[in-house]
Computed example of a mutant assay.
Amino acid sequence: MTDTTISIAEDTWVEAGQEVNSPEQLREYVAQLRAAVSHMQTGLGRAAWGALTGRSWLDTPADETPNVPDILSQHLEMTVTPAGTTAKDATYRQSLAALLVALDAVDRATLTVWLAQTAAQDPDRRA
C-alpha cells in the first residue's frame, strides 16, 4: 500500500477528511472512499459465499463463482423465510444482505458525488 492510499486498518479516514481544503482534494478523497467501499463489498460478498456454502471463494471453480448481486439474490435476500430456516440463520442472512446493500448504496452515493463535482465544473461534459 502506498503512502497516499487511505488504509482502513490505520483508521485515517477522519484525519484525511479534515485535511481536505479544495474541490480537487475532495474528489480524490471520494475516489479513495469509493475504492475502499468496493473492496469491502467484494470481500464481504466472497466471505458470505464461503460461510453460506461451506466452500471458500478460492476453492470454488471460476465458472461457479457468482458476483455480489447473485450472492444476494441466491443466498441472502428473503421476502419469505424458506421452510426449515431457523430464526438465527434468517437473521444472519438478512444482516449480511443489509451490509452488502448498504455498501452498494455508499458506492452509488460516491458516484453521485463524482458526477455532481464534474457537472459543477463543466455541465456539458460527457459522463
Score class of each variant (00 low, 15 high):
T118L: 04
N21C: 07
Q121G: 10
V30L: 14
A31G: 14
T118R: 09
E19A: 11
A87H: 12
L26V: 03
N21I: 10
A116Y: 07
P69M: 07
L33G: 14
V101K: 08
T85D: 13
E24V: 04
D11T: 06
E19M: 09
T118F: 04
A16S: 14
R93Y: 02
A102N: 12
L33E: 15
P69V: 08
W49S: 00
S7G: 01
Q32T: 06
Y92G: 02
A109W: 07
V101G: 04
Q25G: 14
M1I: 10
W114E: 10
L44W: 02
Q94Y: 05
R34Q: 14
E19C: 02
L100K: 13
T79Y: 03
T79D: 11
A31F: 04
E77F: 06
T12Y: 00
L26G: 01
V80H: 05
L52T: 09
T12W: 00
L96R: 07
A9W: 06
L115E: 13
L111T: 15
A31D: 15
A97M: 04
Q41W: 06
T5H: 09
S73E: 15
T5G: 01
V106C: 11
E10R: 14
V68Q: 06
T5Q: 12
T81R: 13
P23K: 12
A16H: 13
R93W: 05
A87R: 00
P123E: 03
V37H: 05
D124L: 12
L26E: 05
A102V: 03
G45L: 02
T86S: 15
A97I: 03
T81C: 05
R108S: 13
Q18F: 06
V68G: 01
A119I: 10
N67P: 01
V101Q: 12
E19L: 03
T81W: 00
L52P: 04
T91E: 14
R34V: 02
A98M: 10
R34E: 15
Q74P: 05
S56T: 15
A47D: 08
G54L: 12
T91I: 10
V68R: 03
V113Y: 07
S56R: 11
T118W: 06
D122H: 14
T112P: 03
